[in-house]
């Protein structure tokens, strides 16, 4: 059974997150799941008084996603991690390690993907 999530889109993501922040939710983390050859699931987890709220964003591979680190600074670490492991790039990262949070310069693959992807930033498009 899937966890109860609220589906969001790239356009509404930042607004939804901002709304949660204003309501006093604490960001727990984000999870990236490799769904199939073309899509990732991004799940954002929030917590308030021990209750959890999840936002789900389904995105195609190879296209950048808006970063929420502008709303919650704490998200920069997890977004950098996803960038390293899945090759999913974030637009407007507050602190961008550019794929070198864990990985070395010579690593060109995306180690956590079942199907490899090519990294694409907004600038490259």
């Amino acid at each position: 059974m899937p966890i109860p999530t609220k589906q969001v889109t790239k356009e509404t993501l930042v607004a939804e997150v901002l709304q949660l922040k204003n309501a006093g939710w604490r960001i727990v983390t984000a999870t990236c799941v490799d769904l199939n050859e073309n899509e990732f699931d991004l799940i954002y987890h929030f917590d308030k008084d021990l209750q959890m709220e999840h936002l789900r964003l389904t995105v195609p591979k190879g296209a950048p996603v808006p970063s929420i680190s502008g709303v919650y600074l704490a998200a920069f670490l997890v977004e950098n991690e996803i960038q390293d492991q899945f090759g999913l790039c974030f637009d407007g990262l507050a602190l961008n390690f550019a794929n070198h949070l864990y990985l070395d310069d010579e690593v060109a693959t995306t180690p956590f993907c079942k199907f490899g992807v090519v990294r694409k930033t907004a600038a490259a498009e």
């Binding site: 727990v28 799941v33 490799d34």
Partner: peptide
């Protein structure tokens, strides 16, 4: 498993 994601507390405590 398809995915096993672990969010450890220190990961959350680095931004603070």
């Amino acid at each position: 498993l398809d995915r096993c994601r672990i969010r450890t507390p220190t990961f959350a405590n680095i931004p603070p």
